[in-house]
Amino acid sequence: MNIKALGGCCTRSTQNFLNIQEAVKKMDLDIEVEQVSDTNEIMMYGVMSTPGLVINGKAVASGRLLSVEDAMALITRHKD
């Protein structure tokens, strides 16, 4: 599984990235979460508002800061 946290320009995006990392850790997954801050790359996922979350190349959240619980729920839902 491949997980990317979108957004790098504001503190909110960084918090989002940290929360997703925490979620992965809590779920005992051996995955490196990647933070994407390049606008062009973010837009390749069709996302126009950060923070966002991409799982296996598909945008599953945009424009909202995910809590650790939110991120865990989304990862579980889009695992396969």
Binding site: R12, N40, M43, M44, Y45, G46, V47, A59, V60, A61, S62, R64, L65, S67, D70
Partner: peptide
């Protein structure tokens, strides 16, 4: 110089909407 990418609108449930609104308010 780039193509337009449309994604399927990400549907939120009521709980997610309320949590979004709360987070947005604090932020």
């Amino acid at each position: 110089d780039g193509e337009n990418i449309d994604i399927d609108f990400i549907k939120l449930n009521q709980k997610e909407r309320l949590s979004y609104a709360k987070e947005q308010m604090i932020f």
